[in-house]
Design a protein around this nucleic acid. Structure first.
Lengths: 144, 144
DNA sequence: TCAACTGTTACAAATATAATAACAGTACAC
DNA sequence: GTGTACTGTTATTATATTTGTAACAGTTGA
C-alpha cells in the first residue's frame, strides 16, 4: 500500500493533537519524518476533499476543517490510496486459447476490488480521534 | 500487494483446470505470462506448505495435492504474501518529545495488522474451485 | 549416461516510491 | 508597494522494490 495514507493519518492526528494552532508543512514534516513537499502534496489533496483548511502567506499552514471524531480512516484511504491493494502486475494472457489465461485477470481484479471494500469497511470504524486515543494509550503503556 | 499471490492463485486454478495431467513450470509460466523461474519459486513455496505435489526429472512437473474445493485464497495469501498490506515506509520519529511522533508507527502498525486480518477473513470465503467457477462464468459472459 | 525436469541463487532490467529542488502564487506586516 | 513566510505544483534525482533472466546443482526416468 501507498504510504501517503500513513502520512495523511499521521498529519491529521498531529493536527488533532494541537487543535488551536496552525501547523506548517515544515512542522508536520518534522513530526512525520519526511519532506515538507511531500506533506504539502498529501495535505493539498485532503484540502480538496474538505478535511483540512489551509492558509497561505505569513502565519499560514494547516488546520482541521472538521472535527477529528467525524473523520474516519476509510475516508482518508479513499482520498489518498484507493486501488492500492491490487498489485500493478497482473497475470496476463500468454495463451489465447485457454479459458483460464483469458479470464484470470478479470477474476483477480474483482477479488482485489472486493478485498479493498472489506478493508474500507474496517477502516470505517476508526476515526482520527480514535487514532489519537490509541497514541495516548501506547504512551501510557510504554511508561509503565 | 505482492503479485506472487496472483501467480499462485492463477497457477493453482490452471492445475485445477486440467487435474489429471502434470504441468511443467514452462506450461504454467506460459499460461500466467511470466518466467518459468518465477513460477518455480512460487510453486516451491506452495509445495513446502503441502498444497501441490512436484516431481523432478523427465515427465515431472506440478500436480494438486489437495482438492481445489479445500484450498482457500486465505491460505495462499498466508503462504505467499503475509505482511504485504503494510507499506514498507513508516512515519518515523523526527521529534522525540512528541507523543504523536513517538507512537504513531506502533499505532499504524496495529491498524495495518488488523486490516490484513480482515482481508484474510474475506479470502477465507473463496476457494480455488470458486476461482475456476468464476473464470467459467466470465467466459460465459464474454461470449453472450 | 543423457534428457527433461525442479530447486535455488545471483544478477540485470524495469518500475515504483521517496526525497529534493525550484518556483509561481498568496497573504500579511511593515 | 515590497519583503517575508507560507502553500501548491511540477520536475528531477536517488533509492528501493519488483520482475525477468541466466545459470547450475540435484533428481528422475528412459
Amino acid at each position: 500500500m501507498n504510504s501517503e495514507f500513513t502520512i495523511a493519518v499521521h498529519s491529521l492526528a498531529y493536527l488533532a493533537y494541537q487543535p488551536d494552532r496552525m501547523a506548517t508543512s515544515e512542522m508536520i514534516a518534522h513530526n512525520v519524518n519526511t519532506h515538507p513537499s511531500r506533506v504539502r502534496k498529501v495535505m493539498s489533496c485532503l484540502k480538496k476533499q474538505g478535511y483540512v483548511g489551509t492558509k497561505e502567506g505569513i502565519g499560514g499552514g494547516y488546520l482541521f476543517d472538521r472535527s477529528p471524531e467525524q473523520i474516519t480512516l476509510a475516508e482518508i484511504f479513499r482520498a489518498t490510496s484507493i486501488g492500492s491493494i491490487k498489485p500493478s502486475w497482473c497475470s496476463g494472457n500468454g495463451d489465447d486459447n485457454c479459458m483460464v489465461a483469458c479470464n484470470m485477470a478479470e477474476v483477480m481484479d474483482h477479488i482485489f476490488c472486493e478485498a479493498e471494500e472489506q478493508l474500507i469497511m474496517y477502516l470505517q470504524r476508526i476515526t482520527i480521534n480514535d487514532v489519537l486515543e490509541r497514541v495516548r494509550a501506547a504512551r501510557q503503556q510504554s511508561t509503565t
